[in-house]
Amino acid sequence: MKYFKTPEFLFEVLGEKQSLLEVGCTLVFALVGSWVIYLVAGVELDNWKSMLAFLVIADVLAGCIANFSYGTNEYYSQRPKNRLIFIAIHVHILAVAWLLSEPLDSAMIIWGFTIVSAFIVNALKGTRIQCFIAANLMCYGILLLIYLPLSNWFLMVSAFFLIKVLFSFSVDHFGKQAER
C-alpha cells in the first residue's frame, strides 16, 4: 500500500504518513455514519447546538476508523504521553449529550467506563493480553450500553465512542508484543 506524508496539522488525527485507502475509508464512514445517525435521531440542523453535535459525532465516527490505521497507530505508539492526553480529552459523548439534550447521567456512566477502561488497556501496551483485555472490556461496555435507557441514535453514537476510545485508540495494533 502506498503511503503519503500527512500535513503536519493533521498528525494528531492521521499520523505522519497515511494511505489514500485509509483516509478514504475514514471519510466515507464518518459521512455515511453521521447521515444514518442523523436520520435515526430526527434532529433538525437548524441551530448551532445541533450542528456542533453532528460535527462531534462525525469526529467520533472518523476516529473510530482512523485510529485503526497504521499511520495513526504508529504516531501514538511512539508518543505514549500524547496517547494518555488523547484518551483524557475525549469528552465527546458528554458534549453530544449536552448539545442534544440526552441524559447526562447516562453519558457520564458511558464516559467514565470508557475512559477508565481505555487507561487500563493503554497500561497493557506491549503485552500479548492487551487486545484480549480491550475486547473483554468492550464487550462489557456493550452490555452496559444495552442496559442503559438510551435512545437508538445515542446508543449508536455511544457504541462508536466506546469502540473509538477503548479498542481502536487504546490498543497498539501494530506494535511488537512482549513475551509477558
Rank of each mutant, 00 (worst) to 15 (best):
M1S: 15
M1C: 08
K5L: 06
T6S: 08
P7Y: 13
F11L: 11
E12I: 03
K17G: 04
L20A: 09
F29D: 04
L31D: 08
V32F: 13
W35A: 08
V36R: 09
I37D: 00
L39W: 05
D46G: 12
M51V: 15
F54Y: 14
D59P: 05
C64K: 01
I65H: 02
A66C: 07
F68G: 03
F68Q: 05
Y70Q: 08
N73T: 14
Y75V: 05
S77Q: 13
S77H: 13
S77K: 12
I85A: 13
I85Y: 09
A88L: 12
I89H: 15
V91Y: 12
L94V: 15
V96N: 01
W98D: 01
L99F: 05
L99H: 00
L99Y: 01
E102R: 04
L104K: 01
M108F: 11
W111C: 01
F113K: 00
T114S: 01
V116F: 12
V116I: 15
S117E: 06
V121S: 02
N122Q: 12
G126T: 08
I129Y: 12
Q130M: 03
Q130K: 00
F132M: 13
F132K: 13
C139P: 00
Y140T: 05
G141W: 02
L145M: 11
Y147I: 07
P149N: 10
P149V: 08
P149L: 06
L150M: 04
L155F: 15
L155M: 14
M156G: 11
F160D: 00
F161T: 01
S170Q: 01
H173R: 11
F174K: 10
G175W: 03
A178V: 09
E179W: 10
